[in-house]
Every structure is written in C-alpha cells, then in structure tokens.
Amino acid sequence: MDFITEIKTKIQNILNILKGLFKTKNKNKLTIGFFGSPNVGKTSLANRICIDAGEDPIGNVSVIPHETREILRKEGVTINIGDAKLSMNILDLPGVSIKVDYREFLNYGLSIDEAQERAREATKGIVEALKVMEKVDAALVILDSTQDPRTQVNITLLGAMEAREIPFIIVANKIDLENSNVDRIKKMFPEYPIVAVSALTGKDMDKLYNKIKENIR
C-alpha cells in the first residue's frame, strides 16, 4: 500500500468512526411528537408504546376532551423489533383544536369554574403543542379512524410538517371500533405513510414500530 492510499484509508476510517458517533447520538436523541386533535388516542398510543417497552404509562386517558393539557415526556423508551432496538423520547402533546368551549365540558359533570379553567389550560396546551413542532425530530400524527379526516387541524398539521420537512407517519387509530374507516384516510392522504392500529387493544402495533423504523430512523 503506497503512502497516499494509506492516508486515504486512515481518513476514511476516521470519517466512518465520526459518522458512527453522530448516528448513535441521533439515535439516542430521537424525539417523536404525538400530534392530533383531542380524543383521537394520543395518550392511549403513547401509553401502549410505554407498556410494550416495559415502562409505566405516560399519562391519564379520559373521555372528556383535552385531558392532556401540558406536554408529557418519557425519555429512552426502547422497543425490540426482532433483533433491532427502537429507542425514542416520546412527547405526548395536548390535542389541537380551533375552538375550545368550556360548555362542552359541562356535559361531563364539571362545574362552570372547573370547565372554564380546563378551557384556559387546554388553549395554552394547544399553543405549546404547535410550538413544539419545531423541536421534534419526527412526528406521529394520530387520527381517529372513525371520524372524517378532512379537518382543518389535520390538514394544517400535515401541511406544516411537510413544509418543515419533519418526517411523520399518520396513525389511523381506533381500528377496533366497528365504524372505523381506514380507507377514507388513505384516500385523503395517499402520498403519506399510514399505519392502522388500535392503541386500546394493541392490534398491529408491530406494524407501527416497523413503519417508524423504515420511515423515521
């Protein structure tokens, strides 16, 4: 081996080591935000992933909209996919909506004061959820597959992520329900990666983990 070839080989080795170091760093720091409207199952999905990873659930779930009103964070959640490991930091975000009305909460037995305070916290949570977009490495946009996906929230979130080149996967949740319609979501967003799951039962979560590995890692 001549001198120049030897130098080139050494430089290439150093570059490979540096590349590996940065890759490992990114792997350990990968932060995934869970975006979507209220009550689509963001916290249920985050809890399911935590449970699959042998961790405690990240937060409480409730039928009352806007149960998650501040960002919930869980670091270093690791899922085994065959021989590979998928490690991530989870940011479970407050649900995004274009209107928050305390009167909606009164139907669930809250007092007027409690409902108004919940509405105030929910609005603050929406701002936090939208502003955190610029901080995440990747996103899961969770949709309720029983609902019409053509909403201002869904279109705005997906458009903003596409414009910012944030890798994302659409998660069509609640496929355990009879009126689930995943095809409607696929027709609406044919160019985006979509995985259909049930966070409640755990159905097809392995497909989601593989999709994250393929599209985000």
Binding site: V96, S97, I98, K99, V100, D101, Y102, R103, I112, A115, Q116, A119, R120, T123, I126, V127, L130, K131, M133, Q152, V153, T156, A160
Partner: peptide, 23 residues
C-alpha cells in the same frame, strides 16, 4: 391568533400560531 370570545371560550388560529413567533 387567539380570541377570547367570553370567559372559557377561545378561538385559535392554529396556522398563524405555527408560522408566527408572537402570540
């Protein structure tokens, strides 16, 4: 980008919150 219609009722312009630095 946030309008308080009355106490406990808020309208949120999500697009401008994403794009604008100020609230």
């Amino acid at each position: 980008n946030i309008t308080v219609k009355t106490k406990g009722i808020f309208e949120i312009n999500i697009n401008s919150i994403i794009t604008e630095k100020t609230i």
